[in-house]
Design a protein around this nucleic acid. Structure first.
Lengths: 190, 190
DNA sequence: CTCACTACGAGTCAAGTTGTCTCATAGAAT
DNA sequence: ATTCTATGAGACAACTTGACTCGTAGTGAG
């Protein structure tokens, strides 16, 4: 039985996904059409239609190939971990492809159910992980939270996201430090 | 002499801009095509081409008709003013059209020079006004800033923008309060 | 090595879209 | 009334889209 495991199938699939991601990055989501993807991927137009009859699921999958910023498993002390993770996210948000995927997600999600589901999942993971880590830190006396832990993601990632997508400038350490301190009162300064 | 002042011209122009804005709001930027705008506006397709030979400048102008959140002239005490302004911005960001324009701007600006110029101008106004107000407040001893005043916009608007476009939920007063307090140490609590 | 299988590129095709132009009409200025 | 001009309707070629066909060649099984 061939099909999903046929090397030819997989090769085409990869070439198409790569081409779609490149087009998104270089020219935006509207550039991801069957014709342009086929030409860029070096495959026939019919092949793209066979793999993805609709252009939009292709865009969704192509976006999923870009590694998005997440939060690693928390380690104590949380403040150190948080500083490390936020710095990593700031660095990620400086990459063109991450910025392209982020803003495309936020924008297309307003009119597309599939995209909105991905946006919601993405937001939920960040909010949940950060809230859990901070609740834990507070239980251990590392911090006295000054806001609901479910507000922590917006409070910390928000400024960096705004800096990257609206001001289009890199995040400086000051901003990260201010965001960390905005979460509440930390037990010991580190 | 007619032309720019001809009532017919102005009527078509308004109808086209309104239709374009509605289409953007309902179906996203890709829906703003000459054909769809013409049908929605109740004008001939040729008329849309006559007014805007390119679809993209039409989208730009249609977006400009949506009142975007800005910052009013600062009044003392700055903390009160800031709370009022940020609350107003949070309310604006809850409106579908403001969200549509914001995310479309952030997204299309990555590949379109005109859009990028508008994004930059928008960001600059917010950053400048807030920085000026805060520098002033600090000079008058109202606050001891905990970060560069040019970081204040990202620190305050960022969380609300993230909340609105990524988490797609309304901003609660706690978040605004936390953002205000994150700017530095205020002289008297109000 | 041979053979059956199937994903593929190239090509064709109808239907729809895009951008341009023409022309008669009706709304506006004088 | 008369002149001007923005408009809607329509015609049009060029292009795009989505679907289909067919010969070819890469692939896995025997």
């Amino acid at each position: 039985m061939t099909g999903e495991t046929d090397p030819r199938f997989l090769r085409s699939r990869e070439a198409i996904l790569n081409a779609a991601r490149e087009l998104l990055l270089e020219s935006g989501p509207t550039a991801v059409t069957h014709a342009q993807v086929a030409e860029r991927a070096g495959v026939g137009r019919a092949t793209v239609y066979r793999h993805w009859p609709q252009a939009e699921p292709l865009l969704v999958e192509a976006m999923a190939t870009v590694p998005m910023p997440f939060l690693d498993k928390p380690t104590a002390p949380i403040k150190e971990w948080l500083r490390r993770e936020l710095t990593a996210i700031a660095r990620q948000l400086d990459l063109d492809d991450v910025r392209a995927v982020s803003t495309t997600l936020a924008n297309t999600a307003l009119w597309d159910r599939t995209m909105d589901a991905r946006r919601a999942q993405f937001a939920r993971v960040l909010t949940d992980r950060l809230a859990a880590a901070l609740d834990d830190a507070q239980a251990r006396g590392e911090i006295a939270l000054g806001l609901t832990s479910r507000n922590a993601a917006a409070m910390t990632i928000g400024p960096m996201y705004y800096r990257s997508t609206i001001e289009r400038a890199p995040t400086d350490p000051d901003l990260i430090e201010a965001a960390i301190n905005a979460l509440g009162t930390w037990a010991t300064d580190q």
